[in-house]
Simulated scan of single mutants.
Amino acid sequence: MRWPNKQGLPGGWAGQRVLITGASGGIGYALAEALAQRGAHLLISGRKPEVLATLVNRFPAQITAVGADLTRAEDRHRLISAAHLSACTMLINAAGSNQQGFFDASSDSDIEQLVAINLTATLQLTRALLPQLMACPQATIITIGSTFGQLGYPGQVTYCATKFALRGFSEALRRELADTRVRVMYIAPRATRTAMNSPQTDALNVALGNTVDSPHAVALAIINAVEHQREELQIGLPERFFTRLNTLWPGAVDRALLRQLPIIRRFVATKESTS
């Protein structure tokens, strides 16, 4: 289903009431800033109330904040109630966490926590808000995934598992809602300069020559994708090529990553951060 105006936004951004999770860090923060500058009315959520407060102070007429740990049912219910009061027409699932480390060193709690934050809480929140969104004349659900949602990568096994699942979730939900007024989008950033990155991760990106985007650049790419009615966006031409190669010729990617493995082993360490 395509929206009637050429930018896919009835009333433009000023007509949108947007819930952004993970707004206390990285991409979520940059999105909140950029959308507020475009006139959108925002309900933002994150685990760091003091960071959310800086956005509220800058845009007091446009932003309301709810500090929340989305893995806790009571916090999700508070956020859902606030979303009803705010009459949100767009949900941006930007909350997430990362753990860099080899899988054999992961604990049960490491795995449970990452799956709960990245996957379970996202599905639970989206499902709870679906009736409200489906009642809107037009609505949008945007989920922020990763290049590692299409490319299994050493040192990122559990993270990859959650992001592969989010991509499948978005694809299936988009098809399930194809005859409704709710659009479902999936965005896959590549390496991004956020607080989720440990110093080891930053050093690994340098050693491998990876391009690392700013959160602001990713936010602008997401906004452009919404305005042009994209259903899925993978950021970065080399990354798009590599993930396509992974689909068509996975053995070639296996060999390329095997050559990178000694470098990865030099820098890999378990590090978690959440927003």
Results as ranks from 00 to 15, higher is better:
Leu91Ser: 01
Thr54Glu: 10
Arg76Thr: 08
Arg72Ile: 14
Leu70Trp: 00
His41Tyr: 11
Ile80His: 04
Leu55Thr: 12
Gln100Leu: 05
Thr89Val: 03
Asn98Arg: 02
Glu50Val: 09
Leu91Cys: 06
Met90Lys: 01
Gln99Met: 11
Ile63Gly: 03
Leu70Ser: 09
Arg78Ser: 12
Thr89Phe: 00
Thr89Ile: 04
Gly46Cys: 11
Phe103Lys: 03
Ala87Asn: 15
His41Leu: 08
Val56Glu: 02
Met90Val: 11
Leu91Ala: 03
Phe102Lys: 10
Leu52Trp: 05
Leu43Lys: 15
Val56Ala: 08
Glu74Pro: 02
Leu79Cys: 05
Asp69Ala: 09
Ala65Gly: 13
Asp104Val: 15
Leu42Asp: 08
Leu70Met: 10
Ile44Thr: 13
Leu55Asp: 09
Pro60Asn: 01
Asp69Trp: 02
Ser45Gly: 07
Gln100Ile: 02
Ala83Asp: 03
Ala73Asn: 12
Phe102Cys: 08
Ala53Gly: 12
Val56Ile: 01
Leu43Asn: 14
Gln99Val: 13
Phe59Pro: 04
Asp75Ala: 09
Leu55Val: 15
Gln99Cys: 10
Thr64Asp: 11
Asp104Arg: 12
Leu85Lys: 14
Leu52Lys: 06
His84Asn: 08
Cys88Ala: 04
Phe103Val: 15
His84Thr: 11
Pro49Asn: 11
Phe103Ala: 12
Phe102Gln: 11
Phe59Asn: 02
Leu52Tyr: 07
Gly67Trp: 00
His41Val: 09
Ser97Ala: 14
Asp104His: 15
Arg47Leu: 08
Leu42Thr: 12
